[in-house]
Simulated assay, not measured.
Amino acid sequence: MTGRRRWETEEILDTAAELLRTSDAESFSVRKLAAALGTDSSSLYRHFRNKTELLRAVVDRIMLAAMDDYRPEGDWKQRVIALALRLHAAFGEQPQLAVVWGRYASSGSGSRLFMEELLQALRASGLPDEEVPVRYHRFVILLAALISADAGIGTINPDEYEQGMEFFRVAVLGADPERFPALAHFARDIRPLGADRRAAFEEILAAQLAHIEAQIP
């Protein structure tokens, strides 16, 4: 009698990442993953204790890929921006996982590499040591929010996007000037959330770095 195939951890993570390309973390389940692999859930629990642990492992692989061949260059601000853009690009290819990253903490190699480099860059700025963890925490919260928001836009299909744009045009250009005078005044210049997101991302990062720089003695 032929025994059931034993799946390697990397094969399981590959399949999980592929499933998460087309479904969100809420609808993803170990049962669905097992079905895609042609096995039962119990065999996967030998590798991961639960769904959350599995999702963390998939996210950490994204971060590990983002840090692959990274070499710190430039001053501390250039290093921080390079890290942010690498993560932004990595999660842009797997937008469903950006929300997972913002929700579940990861403790794998990819996460540690990112944390180490960001902490080193902030320390190189001249911040007092007691300020570094605080600024690190604020920066990561901002980064997770921006990347998750960008990723959310990236999961919308063209029909949904065009429908949303139509709603936006109706809401903004059709605003009653008596009830919404400011909105009516600026209506033709207001951009929808999906526009110029890369430029907005970089501008918000620059503002945060300027705020950090102002804390340096």
Rank of each mutant, 00 (worst) to 15 (best):
M1Y: 09
G3A: 13
R4M: 11
R5F: 15
R6L: 12
W7I: 03
E8S: 12
T9R: 13
E11D: 10
I12T: 07
A16F: 08
L19M: 11
L19P: 01
R21G: 08
S23K: 11
E26P: 00
E26Q: 09
F28H: 02
F28P: 00
S29K: 01
V30M: 15
R31G: 08
A35M: 06
L37R: 04
G38N: 01
T39F: 04
D40C: 10
D40V: 08
S41L: 00
S41G: 13
S42L: 02
R49S: 12
T52Q: 15
E53V: 12
R56A: 12
A57Q: 05
V58A: 10
D60G: 03
D60S: 03
R61I: 06
R61W: 09
A65L: 05
A65K: 06
D68A: 13
D68W: 08
D68C: 00
D69V: 03
D69L: 06
P72F: 07
P72K: 01
P72C: 06
E73K: 03
G74I: 06
G74L: 09
K77W: 01
K77S: 08
K77T: 04
Q78G: 15
V80G: 04
I81A: 13
I81K: 04
A82I: 01
A82Q: 14
L83H: 11
A84L: 11
A84R: 03
L85D: 15
R86C: 01
H88V: 02
G92D: 05
Q96D: 06
L97P: 03
A98Q: 02
A98M: 10
V100E: 15
R103W: 08
A105K: 05
S109W: 07
G110Q: 05
G110N: 05
L113Y: 14
M115S: 13
E117P: 00
E117M: 09
E117H: 13
L118A: 14
L119H: 12
A121I: 02
A121G: 04
S125G: 04
G126I: 01
L127F: 12
D129M: 13
E130Y: 14
E131H: 14
V132M: 10
R135I: 06
Y136Q: 11
Y136L: 08
H137Q: 15
H137R: 15
H137T: 13
L142Q: 11
A144D: 10
A145H: 03
L146W: 04
L146E: 15
I147S: 07
G152K: 01
G152W: 03
G152M: 12
I153Y: 14
P158Y: 07
D159M: 09
Q163G: 04
Q163D: 10
G164I: 09
G164H: 07
E166V: 06
F167T: 07
F168K: 00
R169L: 10
V170M: 12
V170E: 14
V170F: 11
F180S: 11
F186E: 12
F186T: 02
A187H: 10
A187L: 04
A187Q: 11
A187F: 10
D189E: 13
I190H: 09
P192H: 10
L193P: 02
G194I: 01
G194P: 01
F201G: 11
F201N: 13
A206M: 10
L209A: 08
A210S: 15
A210L: 10
I216D: 05
P217D: 09
